[in-house]
Simulated assay, not measured.
Amino acid sequence: MPHPDPSAVQALLGSRASPCRRGLTGARGIALPPFFDHHVHLHLIDETQLAAHGIAGVVDLGGDPLALARRPRRGMPYVAYAGAILTAAGGYPSGRSWAPPQVVREVTDPSTSAGVAGGATTAVDEQVEYGASVIKVALNAASGPVFDDALLAAIVAAAHARGLPVVAHVEDGDGMTGTAERAVNVGVDVLAHTPFTSILAAEVIERAAAQQAWISTLDIHRDEPETREIAIANLRTFTAAGGRVLYGTDLGNGDLPVGVNPGELTALREAGLDAAAIVASLTDPWPGVAATAGGDASGTKASGTSTFIPGDPPSIDDELTAWLAGATVVPTEELIHDDLR
């Protein structure tokens, strides 16, 4: 049986998709760049299962910075990380069972001077010293106090001064609304979750789409239909406005599959992403996770690994997410790209 037309495959999945076969087994399928999960917590999962289920690299968005800094620089999963989550005094995730003290860094002073106890610059510098590629802040008003605008702006400025993006967990609650808009106003680069507490105004989403990426994490709401629909509706508007979507699951948050998550892919389809856009969200190298393994800046190559999905892409759209979830990580040199049709 011939391979599918490469041009048809690329029209469906994007320009970096290629029909191929595995040299060791002869199995036919599609080669793609490495897949990344842009929101995980490594201390809460069995990371050894990731590659077998399609995920080559991850972005840890809340972990012990010392433990993350001591990780081997080679091997899978390829890891970029934020280190500790910066939060207001007593703010989220302080006191959470999943977040030991090392995962939380309270910031109380907007000082731009290095070495100030509780200072914004001091907290950012600490994560940088531990090798962070991104700075994460908590704006979870549903679970405790959050930064005021001056302190939030100081953290963002300190991170940007060191060339690092800022990712924020935004969540309204306890009488406070507008956390997503506040993140836009101070120049936060990425939202750790698609906003899910209320439908955002179109003007706020348009501004966000012009300056931010959103990490999807839609499937964490699988048991909360109303919240799930709010998140999907916000992401649908964000995508329509040209926003950049990053595939992410918040892996470690509840009973999520380790690897490519079919539920997340299904929700992305509901939010209006086509197959090529979903693949783009999976292969996006933000914030340099490919480079942590010696890959190039575009994410097209991460230390000689590729994604292999057995079989031809399905012609029925509803079957696409199940097919993508069959991905595995293989050495790039193992894949043979046939010219035969």
Rank of each mutant, 00 (worst) to 15 (best):
M1R: 01
P2I: 04
G14M: 01
H39M: 01
T48S: 15
Q49W: 03
A52C: 05
G63K: 09
D64A: 10
P77F: 02
Y81A: 10
G91W: 03
P93E: 06
P100N: 02
R105V: 02
T108P: 00
V116M: 08
A117Q: 13
G118K: 07
A120M: 05
T122A: 13
E126C: 01
Q127D: 06
A158Y: 12
R162E: 11
R162W: 08
V166I: 09
A168P: 06
A168R: 07
V170F: 03
D172G: 01
G175A: 08
M176C: 00
M176E: 03
E181I: 00
R182W: 01
D189H: 03
A192M: 12
I199G: 04
I205E: 09
E206V: 14
L218D: 07
D219W: 03
R236A: 06
G248A: 04
L251V: 01
L265E: 04
A267Y: 02
L268D: 14
R269Q: 14
R269H: 07
E270D: 02
G272P: 00
V289G: 06
A293H: 05
D296C: 01
S298C: 08
T300V: 08
S306C: 07
G311H: 14
A325H: 13
E333I: 09
E333A: 15
L340N: 11
